[in-house]
Design a protein around this nucleic acid. Structure first.
Length: 498
RNA sequence: GGUGCUGUGGCCGAGUGGCUAGGCAGAGGUCUGCAAAACCUUUUACAGCGGUUCGAAUCCGCUCAGCACCUCCA
């Protein structure tokens, strides 16, 4: 029996706004597509949160023994600055400003994104396609839409005909809008619009003479619209209809709505069974974004060089901090919250260390084994309930208390049956490290350092035996200043590195 | 203006019609040469006003406050 049969997943589908049981299209397999970053600047912590949320989600699917194909793209062309018709391509603009080849911009920030992902222990996707690598597919898709009469060409640009699409299908079903309201929303007042209808969106844009990113197409030199790449790449690698599509909630409209229209316009059916949207990271209640100037870069966080931070925080502290909230809730970023998270993270890590240090028992007290089995199962139940990492952490802390307690109670430990203990410790350790992706950050694995500190501990205990507390305290204090904390227990002194 | 969401104790944050979330901080205790860690005990809640109900922080209505999307944004 596979784990996913024992612990079926329920998830909140943005399409229905309800929690539904997850049923894959192909038994035992899951296809997940997540909108990746537009690589025109450094990723900030708000971006990180989204990729972290979906990292944990895909990790959990894999842990449940699903065969997962996780696709997350890199947007390296087509994302326009400002209004969709007047704007300039983001990467093109950055390239012009920095006098670089556009692909240099793309490479630089793709590298940055990968580096940041690794630091936060966000696993790479199984496929990471780029928009520029799929221009032929995008052009083909536009041709298909033109053939269906769902797109029209104006002055060497091609637009999607939303009104036409809406005659047979429902544009706005994901974000709860209708096209009349959208037309009335009266945000933009541009006059020299090529579009037949203001709610139409670009599939292909003619490149102006100064525009440096350009490709040949049946409509002349130009570049693809932003929404198209995701439609093309998701269905290419996951099928015309696939299981899960994720992304930040700010992409729900118009981006994801357009994706649905572009695909459903051709196939007549919804391309995605379950839409998942992660919520925003906020600062003082406001969305973290570059344009508001309230964004944090990873390096500012690690160094603590930011006016809202009192000190630096490690990547795993931040990962822990983000996992304490549900992916669908906003999360507020503050120094106090990070400080609390830092301590919580350390408590969990020391629990993990303790769990590994305990010798496996082989007892026969069924009752004590039973509670351990229940706690372990509870981890699965919480994660299977819409990926509730906050509740999962609460269970892991209960397990931590249990483990710490057993550290000083060898009699109780020895009563626990071997299989119950194995399942308990295995689940504990794997949920922390494999599912939640929290890893140890200290240098405690350094053998030489361990030897040196143990030597000092020996010298100190000799001083203690001869009641030379001045010397023993000196050793402890000096090591403490270097971040090595000594703790006297019943069975001698142990140390941890902060 | 339209659509949707949120308001939980000192802080951060889960959650649900009746039973302790959890972390951090605070208080007391055990242990200790003293600490630290750990363990035990413990104080502060569900924005306001009405309604439904045997019972609501949880459902409904209104009010207030805030946020997101409707431009680019994870």
């Amino acid at each position: 029996m596979k784990r996913y049969e024992k612990f079926p997943i329920r998830l909140t589908n943005s399409l229905s706004s309800k929690k539904e049981e997850f049923k894959p299209i192909h038994e035992g397999r899951v296809g997940i597509y997540v909108c990746g970053p537009t690589v025109y600047s450094d990723v900030h912590l708000g971006n990180v949160r989204t990729f972290l949320c979906f990292d944990v989600i895909q990790r959990y699917f894999k842990y449940l023994e699903y065969k997962v194909r996780y696709v997350r793209n890199i947007t390296d062309v087509g994302h326009l600055e400002g209004d969709a018709d007047e704007g300039e391509d983001k990467i093109s603009k950055k390239a012009r400003l920095e006098q670089l080849e556009p692909m240099e911009i793309v490479q630089r920030y793709t590298n940055d994104f990968h580096r940041v992902s690794e630091v936060f222990n966000i696993l790479p996707p199984d496929i990471e396609p780029t928009a520029t690598g799929h221009l032929i597919e995008q052009i083909r898709h536009i041709e298909a839409l033109l053939e269906k009469g769902l797109a029209y060409e104006v002055n060497r640009s091609v637009y999607f005909d939303v009104k036409k699409y809406n005659e047979h299908q429902q544009y706005g079903k994901l974000s709860g809008r209708n096209i009349d309201e959208l037309r009335d929303s009266g945000r933009s007042l541009d006059s020299q619009d090529e579009k037949r209808d203001k709610i139409d969106f670009a599939l292909w844009k003619k490149a102006s003479p100064k525009h440096i990113m350009r490709w040949d197409s049946p409509w002349g030199k130009g570049f693809p619209g932003w929404h198209l790449e995701c439609t093309v790449m998701s269905t290419k690698y996951l099928g015309e209809t696939f299981d899960i599509h994720g992304g930040g909630i700010d992409l729900k409209f118009p981006h994801h709505e357009c994706e649905i229209a572009q695909q459903a316009g051709i196939t007549g059916t919804d391309p995605v069974n379950y839409w998942l949207h992660s919520n925003m990271l906020t600062v003082n209640g406001q969305k973290m974004s570059k344009s508001l100037g309230n964004s944090f870069l990873p390096n500012e966080l690690f160094s603590g060089k930011h006016e809202l931070l009192e000190k630096g925080y490690s990547p795993m502290t931040v990962r822990f901090f983000m996992l304490q909230s549900h992916y669908s809730s906003t999360l507020d970023f503050s120094n106090d919250a990070l400080m609390a998270a830092e301590k919580g993270y350390k408590r969990l890590m020391s629990g993990l260390k303790n769990a590994e240090s305990l010798e496996a028992p082989d007892g026969n007290d069924k009752e004590s084994g039973q509670t351990m089995l229940q706690l372990a199962d509870q981890c699965f139940l919480e994660m299977s309930d819409d990926f509730n990492t906050a509740k999962t952490l609460a269970v892991l802390f209960e397990m931590t208390t249990r483990i710490n307690d057993l550290m000083t109670k060898p009699d109780e430990l020895s009563k626990i049956p071997a299989d119950a203990w194995k399942y308990f410790v295995g689940t504990y350790s794997e949920f922390i490290q494999e599912v939640l992706g929290l890893k140890k950050e200290t240098a405690e694995d350094d053998k030489m350092l361990e030897g040196i500190v143990n030597l000092l501990i020996k010298l100190r205990s000799e001083a203690k035996i001869s009641r030379d507390f001045a010397k023993s305290d000196m050793i402890r204090d000096e090591l403490g200043k270097m971040g090595v904390r000594l703790m006297d227990g019943k069975d001698g002194t142990t140390f941890s590195i902060d």
